[in-house]
Design a protein around this nucleic acid. Structure first.
Lengths: 191, 191
DNA sequence: CCTTTTTACTTGACAGTGTCAAGCTGGGTG
DNA sequence: CACCCAGCTTGACACTGTCAAGTAAAAAGG
């Protein structure tokens, strides 16, 4: 357990509200009420709502990176196996924490993206992707092509499924999984 | 010009606010004020905020489909040329209408997704993608694989660029464009 | 032509939100 | 002991969406 400061308790409360009641229910006052303090208490630990959101998102990116790392490391330890594992973790996180995932990737201005904890956690998640892509040659002349390709692919699929625009069919005759798509890519190992 | 009813004028006002001041400024009362009616007038034409948003989004999808169709039809008329044109339109729309794009693909519950106009416009946009992908074989056993691959790719890239997570470098030595990525895919024509 | 109803909108209220200013309170420092 | 100051509370403000009641004008019915 992290420190039991009011700051961290407010972040925990926010994550719980997000998980239980969704994004619309996540308010400063609701977090304060759940922790049992007055509605203006959070302002002494965060710079308003944007600051609290940044704290919640930072924690979210840590859990996100944990999920990806876990699934990557428990997969078959080949380049493509690790990549599929990582992306399965990406998809799993977006499925298991839909509201948090939306919040994390929907920073439409009202969240403080300069928060140091946010940057650290966000960078860690990105580095996982970067590492897992290093065995591969760029798929086009641009040096970052492969990781951009993989990232855009998995992020787009997660987002579109999560918003109901691509429905995951049980019969699996129609809709491909992220693993199907990744294995269809022309990825080539270095030398 | 569409009909000058209050309904359509409110939708237009919403689109303008979205473009000028962003998503956070889009409120029922702001739309009503811009049109010059009282704050409760919109309730007689939409079922509350979710209904107004559905109307705005429906108009947004129409413009979105127009943009894609335009860029697709003015591109080189080969299967890959048309596909690149379509996706360039996708990217262009997300760049030119960031707030509207966020609203359209971020229906986190507070928008009425049963609105018939919304469904019609949304279906039209999807059908453009579907059509443009039909010349190609599925990239994996799943019949919808190619269009899901393309859609996830372009949508992910648009979303990640739009939220600043992938920055478009001018030097173009690092970051690939959607066209680079599409042309790197192993797409095969039918027979 | 007069009455009635319906539609389109206004006005006013309500609970909820984030934010700010002022006040309290208890523990540490001079 | 006096002080002060971080941590929290209380109360207010402007803003939001939504609802109920009222109004004015157009449409409908006789």
């Amino acid at each position: 357990m992290t420190q039991d400061t009011l700051r961290s308790r407010l972040i925990m409360a926010g994550l719980e509200i997000l998980q239980e009641k969704g994004l619309a229910a996540l308010t400063l006052r609701a977090c304060a009420a759940r922790v049992g303090v007055s509605h203006a208490a959070p302002a002494h630990h965060f710079s308003g709502l944007p600051g609290l959101l940044a704290g919640i998102i930072a924690k979210g990116f840590t859990q996100f990176a944990d999920t990806m790392e876990e699934d990557r490391n428990s997969a078959e330890q080949t380049p493509i196996g690790r990549l599929c594992g990582l992306c399965n973790g990406y998809m799993r996180f977006s499925r298991e924490h839909p509201a948090l995932f939306t919040l994390m990737f929907n920073t439409s201005g009202e969240v403080d993206t300069d928060d140091p904890a946010f940057c650290r956690a966000s960078d860690r998640a990105y580095n996982l992707l970067h590492e897992t892509c290093t065995p591969y040659l760029p798929v086009s002349p641009q040096s970052a092509a492969t990781e951009v390709l993989v990232w855009a692919l998995v992020h787009g699929l997660a987002t579109l499924q999560h918003s109901g625009r691509i429905v995951v069919t049980e019969s699996e005759g129609e809709t491909p999984t992220i693993e199907d798509l990744l294995r269809s890519l022309p990825l080539k190992l270095h030398t």
